[in-house]
Design a protein around this nucleic acid. Structure first.
Lengths: 118, 118
DNA sequence: ACAGACTAGTTTGTAATACAAACTAGTCTG
DNA sequence: CAGACTAGTTTGTATTACAAACTAGTCTGT
């Protein structure tokens, strides 16, 4: 098995994270959805602080990946988009969360010697 | 101060991470450099597993941002590129490391109730 | 009744990206 | 001295992230 240097394995793992979730805007969307049964477009808009256009396109991307279900309904006569995290999305998030923690834990620390340098 | 929903502050902070370091390839480069006084192109190539082209362009980007110093020398008659993390790069990494840890810690967990759902 | 404001999103345009393949410039070897 | 090798850089391509402009319809004041 080829070793690739001295940087910790955990940190080298960063090259394999799910790029779909590594994008901050989408991680925020999915993290918001994670705790909820379902929610609507307006809620996510408020929760994430994204613009409508951005939120719309990130949701489409997550939908194409099978990470969210998007259901179009009406609240009275006004269109309402219901968004749900799928089981696949939930699993992908679980994996990403654990990878991120491994990586964060594995990043090198400032040592006392480093402090002296300046 | 406007609240933006129920997702934890730490996680909302993800929208403000340093995009230069959030890119896996570059984080790996900078994490590799962090522990070292200086190193060369060949070492990083091996350490990161990137292609030469990719490493070259990521290093240029880090150099433009002032995160690394690149010095061109010769080892005998063969060109040798020496790379060093600057103090600015070191500080940026310190900040990113802490932000990442906050975010990783703040991501929602799978609850017992969630487990039941499937 | 209908002009204009509002709700709820989607589509379009643009600049920046990440990546690998192709290239450059020179050195070493049989 | 041809070809293989070292050490990188440049170029080409497809994907992206983002906001501005747009679509489709509903509500409100006069």
């Amino acid at each position: 098995m080829p070793e690739r240097g001295t940087t910790s394995r955990a940190v080298q793992g960063i090259t394999q994270v799910d790029r779909l979730l590594h994008e901050p805007a989408r991680l925020l969307i999915v993290a918001s959805l994670y705790a909820l049964e379902e929610t609507d477009f307006r809620y996510l808009l408020n929760e994430t602080g994204l613009t409508k256009g951005n939120l719309s396109s990130h949701l489409s991307k997550l939908e194409r990946a099978g990470y969210v279900d998007i259901e179009k309904t009406f609240r009275g006569k006004i269109p309402l988009t219901i968004i749900r995290l799928t089981e696949a999305g939930r699993r992908a998030f679980d994996i990403y969360r654990e990878q991120l923690r491994q990586i964060a834990a594995g990043l090198p620390e400032r040592t006392e010697k480093d402090e002296d340098q300046r």
